[in-house]
Every structure is written in C-alpha cells, then in structure tokens.
Amino acid sequence: MMNKLQDFEQEQLRPEVPEFNIGDTVDVHVRIVEGDKERVQVFTGTVIARKSGGSRAAFTVRRIVAGEGVERVFPLHSPWIEKVVVKRRGRVRRAKLYYLRKRIGKATKVRERIGQDRDGKKKD
C-alpha cells in the first residue's frame, strides 16, 4: 500500500537535484511568469536550512536586502527552480544556520570552505 505512494512521490522528484550544502552562497534561478511572459529571476543568498521530505524537500536562502533580512523557502523539486549555482562554499558546523538571523553586518558572514570536502577533510 505504501509503495504506490512512494513510487508516486519518486516520480515527482526532479531528475537532477542541484548540489549544494548548508552555508553555501548560491544563486537560485527562479522562473517567473509575468502576464504571458516568462523570465528568470536570480535570488542570491546563504543557504541556512535544508528540509528533507522526499518530493516535499525544501531549502531556505537568506540574504540582506537594504538592511533588512529576507528569507525565501524554495521547494527543491519545483519546476520553477531552473538551477542553483554555488558561488561560494561555506564552512559551517550546524545543519540549520538560524543563528544568522540575530546577527548583523560582518557577523553574518560564513567562513569559506576551501579545498575541503564536506567532512572537513582535505581533498587530494
């Protein structure tokens, strides 16, 4: 009984899931329909959370616009998301970076991860 439900959700997933991690600074390319025209809007910010949930998986991107924090939650498998481009990898020790909400200015910066894979080990 559960299998049909799981199979159905499997079908809803996008074929290629964009690769990014918590703390990364990303460009999210979002398709937007204005009237009958369609264009791509880019939302740049830090990935502060990823929520699992199969076809309902989502991620949250935070950025500061005109001194005001703006967060957008994107469904990972939404066809509106054209692509997610990683601009800068972040070195973080938490799965959810909600502590960034309380910080302002320079403190909101996430340390960059250079030449390391996700576990913090050095790459060849």
Partner: peptide, 18 residues
C-alpha cells in the same frame, strides 16, 4: 492510500490523493 503533492503544468504545487 494517502495524500501527496504534485506540480501542475504551470509549476504550482497541488495537493493530490492517491
């Protein structure tokens, strides 16, 4: 069987029941 979601042609999330 249960409820889930899917995306329609326009990309909107729609609740569905199996």
């Amino acid at each position: 069987l249960g409820t889930s979601q899917r995306y329609d042609e326009a990309g909107n999330r729609v609740q569905v029941t199996l």
